[in-house]
Design a protein around this nucleic acid. Structure first.
Lengths: 127, 127
DNA sequence: CCCTATGTTCAATGTTTATTGAACTATCGA
DNA sequence: TCGATAGTTCAATAAACATTGAACATAGGG
């Protein structure tokens, strides 16, 4: 029984993205924080890798949440060597659910303290 | 041990409304359909009672979902005799999370078929 | 070629969730 | 006062979910 590490993670097509799944994904505080952090970073590099989220939870738990975010269509994973780079599927989400992602993100920003989200400067990637 | 039926259901204050709870509430297809139906009805009467949702599920399951919607701050319940009238907490939601409810509702409207939501004419209250 | 770093997969655990039917409360009207 | 109507509460169940640690896969650098 060989266990392989998928080099081409599954992503739903734009049309396959479902509203309830997206909302459910965003309703988990850890996943919301991941999405928020990806959005913050967009202006700089648009991509982050798993290790950049180590403040949020343990590795295996993060992998679980990454999979959910991928499978519901919120983000895209690109494998590069031993790293996996992730970015938001902004255009696809905007096409399917106009205004939704931004409404969620700005709502989250308003409650950043309550949601224990990192402020922008804290998110800057270590080099 | 006396079981009472609360005449003044608990509602969170505006400030107590939390984003993850709201998103989680809206991520359930039945609750999303309830909220959608309430929004459709707003132009006509702004209130609906439990029986108006009997197409969505059984009575006790609906009561369960109504409680969740109330407790997360999405809707308000007013007791009147043997009926409970419900309406969306539009203003509170708009104040806490600007644009969010409308983004969800218009996203849901786009996917009305997929989400098996009733079209506007089907929602009109029976007399 | 081995060691390390990055991240995934699996199994096990305990918690939360949705759904059902039956029992119950409360109100209205005849 | 009796019955019908509207809706809640409870208990039980099965399914889904989040979290943990250990084992594994993969790639890169000495």
């Amino acid at each position: 029984m060989i266990r392989t590490m998928s080099r081409t993670p599954l992503h739903p097509t734009r049309e396959q993205i479902e509203l309830p799944m997206v909302l459910d994904c965003l309703s988990d505080p850890i996943r919301l924080a991941i999405v928020y952090q990806l959005a913050q970073q967009e202006r700089v590099s648009s991509e982050l890798c798993c290790g950049d989220f180590s403040g949020l939870s343990g590795k295996s738990n993060l992998a679980y949440h990454f999979a959910k975010l991928r499978e519901c269509g919120l983000m895209l994973t690109r494998v590069a060597g031993t790293n996996r780079f992730m970015r938001l599927r902004r255009e696809d989400l905007e096409a399917r659910f106009p205004g939704l992602l931004d409404a969620v993100l700005s709502s989250a920003a308003k409650d950043a303290d309550r949601l224990q989200l990192l402020s922008e400067c804290e998110v800057v990637k270590a080099d």
